[in-house]
Nucleic acid binder design. Structure first.
Length: 586
RNA sequence: UACCCCGUGGUGUAAUUGGCAACACAACUGGUUUUGGUCCAGUCAUUCCAGGUUCAAGUCCUGGCGGGGUAACCA
């Protein structure tokens, strides 16, 4: 678990880019703070699956530790047994490892520090800065005041340390009902920072904890547990998201009031903006809703922004990391365009993925001058970007399938594909010229395209040097196999789904076309041997893989991880948008 | 209505800490191309506004304006 040998990145490299956090760390280093040590941590609560937003925090913490020769712990912040489960402890570790990050030493748990935390709490009581309060949750809330008005002191605020100590021990011993009392810090009920209005340190809660079982019936609150756990682990830089900014004074207050080892590093909290992505949501609550209400197939649905969803979708750890480490970090709440994530995959896979031919929406193409029973095998490059990927043989015959969209009864302007009288290249095969097409007498729909081929152009080159503008992909009807192919699109149809008009619902923005299943895709034979999860490029379409969940031997299911850029679609849209009067052919 | 944080191209981040606003993505032009992919070249910002300090301000000061966060015995 703590091995580092398969960490993909080299250790100790200085960051190529600087941000306010790295600048601060370098300042600390220059000033000789913390004895030149940099230590971070990733502190998830084990109450759900990780998503790409967590990925940003993971990448930040682990990358910083790596860059400065420091350490990064994985610590489960398990202080609320009512919400946490072992299942998530396992899943979270798996996801972090999949991303390619390795934490230092053993996995940590805040629950391992319960005893130390408890002792420190008694210390606060002895110093007279913590007290047992018998107010009910509702009373506590009411007396805290509001955002614009100060709170009032609890009537239990002035109990003596002796009395508090006894009460606190009885709390731990289980002598009081759940919710009967709390331990609170005695700070300032009039503070403009609500977090300093005598925050609760411990509540009584009889719930079975996933690690400590029934050993405790009092549990520390986040604020009390977090900074102290950082201190215990020697964390120097405690990075968290912006909403904890107002907690920082409390974080520091606790550190000031416990008895830290002299000379021990004092952790410092620094906040950064969490990741937002267009066309999706990154809030645990919303994601859970999508799963529970069945709008997706589960936490690993390829449309989900969860780490598991991305993995199943076909994203590679390096592509995700490239994205994560490239988005930068700042204190400004921003939203990164989903295309940046997609682009990271495309860019990587352009170099790596082998090419195959797949016809997603087939229409028959008959080569009238090709021998009825003819068959030959043509050589195709597996990856034009990588000579080392070699070549393969693709079967060719008289009847092929081509994309429906590669034929038009009459060619619009700038359309370089098949239309009556037009010549195109069949990739790695021959030039063909369209001679006609057949339609269904009932519907008028084109059911077959006819053409003749030029035998002199075998392989896709003509000796006379004539140019064809279009190259289309194809599969041999006799040799191809049929399989379902799923096309995924954004889960939501608007860039910011959280922007819901009054009375509306987030789900109003769900994209009804986020999943399209093509049941009749025709695939070249080489695709039969594709390993599950491996990405290949379907030429002219995008990067696809065999679904790891829904495929079974003999019945493969393919899906698209990300589409190729499609500048024709863009052009066509633009041409179509032009008023018909102005753009007509001469 | 209180307190805290933040405002740099369409988007996300830079700017040697006061010295010609840079990189990536997107968009748009053009070129190459047996993927309308890739690749190559080019275009795209008076740094939220108004004052002030300075030879010089994205950076420092003042005041506005705008956005976000905060009132769990959640994290």
């Amino acid at each position: 678990m703590n091995d580092r040998q398969d960490t993909t990145d080299a250790d100790g490299e200085r960051p190529a880019r600087r941000d306010f956090i790295r600048s601060m760390i370098e300042e600390d280093l220059a000033a000789g703070r913390n004895g030149g040590v940099v230590q971070t941590r990733f502190p998830p609560e084990p109450n759900g699956y990780l998503h790409i937003g967590h990925g940003k925090a993971i990448a930040l913490n682990f990358a910083i530790a790596r860059e400065y020769g420091g350490r990064c712990n994985l610590r489960f912040d398990d202080t609320n047994p009512a919400a946490e489960e072992d299942e998530f402890v396992e899943a979270i570790q798996e996801d972090i490892r999949w991303l390619g990050y390795r934490w230092d030493g053993e996995v940590r748990f805040t629950s391992s520090y319960f005893e130390t935390l408890y002792r420190w709490a008694e210390g606060l009581i002895r110093k007279g800065v913590a007290y047992v309060c018998d107010l009910s949750p509702e009373e506590t809330r009411q007396m805290r005041g509001t955002i614009t008005s100060p709170g009032q002191n609890s009537p239990y605020r002035d109990r003596t340390p002796e009395e508090n100590l006894e009460l606190f021990r009885r709390m731990r011993a289980g002598e009081f009902e759940d919710g009967a009392c709390t331990l609170r810090a005695k700070i300032d009920m009039a503070s403009p920072n609500l977090n300093l209005r005598d925050p609760v340190l411990y509540r009584i809660l009889r719930a079975r904890h996933h690690r400590t079982g029934d050993a405790w019936c009092i549990y520390p609150m986040y604020d009390w547990a977090h900074g102290q756990s950082d201190a215990i682990e020697g964390v120097t830089h405690s990075l968290c998201s912006l909403e904890f900014e107002n907690h920082r004074p409390l974080y520091d207050w606790f550190l000031d009031h416990i008895d830290l080892e002299p000379g021990a590093p004092r952790p410092r909290q620094t906040e950064f903006a969490r990741l937002n992505l267009t066309y999706t949501v990154l809030a645990k609550r919303q994601l859970r809703r999508l799963v529970e209400e069945g709008h997706v197939s589960g936490w690993d649905d390829p449309r989900m922004p969860t780490i598991r969803g991305l993995r199943r979708r076909g994203y590679t750890p390096t592509a995700v990391r490239t994205f994560l480490e490239g988005v930068g970090v700042a204190k400004f709440n921003s939203t990164v365009d989903m295309v940046v994530l997609e682009n990271a995959l495309r860019e990587e896979q352009n170099r790596l993925a082998e090419r195959r031919m797949a016809v997603l929406r087939p229409i028959e193409l008959v080569i009238e001058n090709y021998p009825e029973d003819g068959e030959e095998f043509l050589e195709a490059h597996n990856n034009p970007e990588d000579e080392g990927a070699g070549t393969r043989e693709v079967p060719f015959s008289r009847t092929l399938f081509i994309e429906r969209s590669d034929f038009r009864e009459s060619a619009p302007r700038k359309y370089h594909r098949l239309a009556p009288g037009k010549e195109v290249r069949l990739r790695y095969a021959y030039y063909v010229t369209c001679t006609g097409f057949d339609t269904d007498p009932e519907t008028g729909e084109v059911v077959r395209v006819r053409c003749t081929y030029d035998p002199e152009t075998r392989g896709g080159d003509s000796a006379d040097g004539r140019k064809v503008r279009g190259t289309i992909h194809w599969v041999s009807a006799r040799h191809a196999f049929t399989a379902p192919v799923r096309l995924y699109d954004h889960l939501f149809s608007v860039p910011n789904p959280m922007d819901v008009p009054e009375g509306g619902d987030l789900l109003d923005h769900l994209n009804p076309a986020s999943l399209e299943v093509l049941e009749n895709a025709k695939l070249e034979p080489a695709l039969r041997e594709l390993a599950p999860g491996t990405l290949v490029q379907f030429e002219r379409h995008g990067y696809f893989c065999l679904d790891t969940v829904d495929s079974s031997p003999g019945s493969p299911v393919f899906h698209r991880a990300v589409a190729l850029r499609d500048s024709w679609a863009k052009l066509e849209k633009k041409l179509g948008a032009k008023p018909s009067g102005s753009g007509g052919a001469p």
